[in-house]
């Protein structure tokens, strides 16, 4: 059974490989985004050495690593699931001898793995040549960061699955998917690190799962958070990863009772 899921990862990886041209332009796009935010934050920092608990060097690294991490954890599982539900092909998935949601996650993982190797790694090299990015020197930090990156992927996928499954209950969840996308980019700390938010808002965001996607791993990578505190962040991620399974399971159970194929 396990090898079946491993195969799904491999197949999606190979499919992505067949369309790799798309990803060269993708590297340029991410470089543009990183450049825009780099200069913007440079202007914000001005003569200040440190703002919002981050030095300007840490900020540069944070922007670069957050965008490159996004290439890995980002996927369109919400859209894929919603499409399967809308065109009715999810009915076929129900009768197959595997777990549909797990299959989707594995496919997303194959896609993410492809982008990590073909996109984030070369992209990070290019970006570090253009901008003053500081890499962590401690291998332990790298280890913690990579573990957190994997958890980022899982949490983001869980949120995507939840959004996608809403298509079972409403006829059109397009708006919801778009809003989720904006919410994830903003609340995860990708665009603005959480420590820059107004206090009241930050407190709320710290109790939401979004920060676990970008802000927590970024904090470890930049060295804003070190030692035991880094492990605490890892545990926060683990907790969210586990906690999000419950609503997905509940929704999946409820959905199977009220599958309603439009048009068919």
């Amino acid at each position: 059974m396990l090898s079946a899921y491993a195969d799904l990862i491999r197949i999606r990886f190979l499919t992505m490989l067949a369309y790799r041209v798309n990803y060269y332009s993708g590297i340029v796009i991410y470089a543009i985004n990183i450049g825009a935010y780099y200069f913007l934050w440079l202007a914000v920092y001005g003569n200040n050495e440190s703002l919002g608990g981050m030095t300007s060097a840490q900020m540069t690294t944070y922007i670069a690593v957050s965008w490159m991490a996004r290439a890995f954890y980002f996927n369109n599982l919400d859209r894929e699931i919603a499409n399967d539900i809308r065109d009715g092909s999810v009915a076929v998935q129900f009768i197959r001898p595997y777990n549909y949601l797990l299959v989707k996650t594995m496919q997303g993982f194959g896609e993410g793995l492809f982008r990590l190797l073909m996109f984030s790694v070369p992209g990070m090299v290019v970006v570090s040549l253009l901008f003053p990015v500081v890499f962590p020197t401690d291998p332990l930090v790298w280890g913690v960061f990579l573990t957190m990156l994997l958890l980022s992927f899982l949490i983001n996928s869980e949120i995507n699955i939840l959004t996608g499954l809403f298509a079972f209950f409403v006829e059109n969840n397009e708006g919801m998917m778009r809003m989720k996308r904006v919410a994830v980019d903003l609340f995860s700390g990708l665009i603005i690190p959480l420590s820059f938010f107004p206090d009241a808002m930050r407190v709320v965001l710290e109790w939401l799962p979004f920060q676990a996607i970008a802000y927590l791993p970024g904090s470890v990578f930049t060295g804003r958070v070190t030692g035991g505190e880094a492990y605490r962040l890892l545990i926060v991620q683990l907790a969210w990863c586990a906690a999000l399974i419950a609503p997905i399971w509940a929704m999946w159970r409820a959905a199977r009772r009220r599958l309603f194929v439009q048009g068919g």
Binding site: N22, S25, I29, I32, N33
Partner: peptide, 14 residues
């Protein structure tokens, strides 16, 4: 598909 059009969208950031 060249994927070049999203470039437009991202340059808006500047």
């Amino acid at each position: 598909p060249t994927g070049i059009l999203p470039l437009m969208w991202n340059i808006q950031n500047y």
